[in-house]
Simulated assay, not measured.
Amino acid sequence: MQTWIALLRAVNVGGTGKLPMADLRALCERAGFTDVRTLIASGNVVLRSPGDERLVRSRLEAALLAYAGKPVGVLVRAPAELGRVLADNPFQDSPGNRVLAMFLDAPPPDDALDGLRHRTTERLALGTREIYIDYRDADTMRGSRLALPVGREGTTRNMNTIARLLAMADG
């Protein structure tokens, strides 16, 4: 059995995709996952499964489709990969709640930042299967209209949430 961290896309954000975390835990257990724990109400799940990343994702997506009646995007990472995301954060000089990793299914293309729109003071950097976004000041983060076309299928988590997920996975 391996520990996995699942990041659900567009769950309980901006009034869309309502999914109580108790329901998410029960759904994961019915799908055969064990030691299921959630963190905050935005679709973060730590679970155990004997399968690989692809199997965990497909089983969880199927269970979410049955529950919600529509597809829910899921990105799955091993704790070591999430630890690397945290360690490789190129914006260590900014507070953890203002630096986000946009998780993607695949490595971002070299031109991933070319279609960027509405950028103001945000700093961005490409990672392995993520894009780092630094909203250095709270006003920029609050009012940002930054649009990243490559990120339509991704989901973001800030560095503080990533650290908390890692602590859960270690526990």
Rank of each mutant, 00 (worst) to 15 (best):
G151T: 14
L64M: 02
A112S: 09
P149A: 08
A87K: 04
L165V: 01
L47N: 10
G143E: 07
P90I: 07
E29I: 15
A80S: 08
A63Y: 04
S42P: 09
G96Q: 10
M141N: 01
A112P: 08
A41T: 11
D23C: 14
H118G: 01
E61Y: 03
L104G: 09
P109K: 03
R152D: 12
N97A: 05
P20R: 15
F33M: 13
T155P: 08
G96K: 10
D137A: 04
V72Q: 03
R164Q: 14
M141G: 00
P108M: 12
M102W: 13
P107H: 02
V56T: 08
A147D: 07
G43A: 13
P90N: 07
V13L: 14
A31E: 13
I5P: 01
R9P: 12
L60M: 11
P108E: 15
S58D: 15
A41E: 13
R9G: 07
P149R: 08
P107D: 02
L75D: 01
L64F: 04
L7T: 08
F103D: 02
V45R: 13
T34H: 05
A101C: 10
A169F: 10
D111R: 15
P71N: 08
Y67G: 00
M21V: 01
S144L: 03
A26P: 09
D139N: 05
G15Q: 14
R54I: 10
G127K: 02
A169M: 11
G32S: 06
G69F: 07
E81A: 12
L39D: 12
R98L: 13
R77G: 05
A78W: 03
M141R: 04
R142W: 02
I162Y: 00
V72H: 01
G17N: 11
R98V: 03
D111I: 14
A6G: 13
L27K: 14
A112R: 11
L146A: 08
G171D: 14
E130C: 10
A163F: 00
V11Y: 03
R129S: 11
Y135S: 01
G143D: 13
P109M: 06
T34Y: 03
L126P: 06
G32D: 10
G69Q: 07
M21N: 11
A125C: 06
A66I: 04
A147Q: 09
L82K: 02
I133V: 15
M168L: 15
L60K: 05
S144Y: 04
R123N: 04
E81F: 12
A10W: 14
L86W: 06
G154C: 07
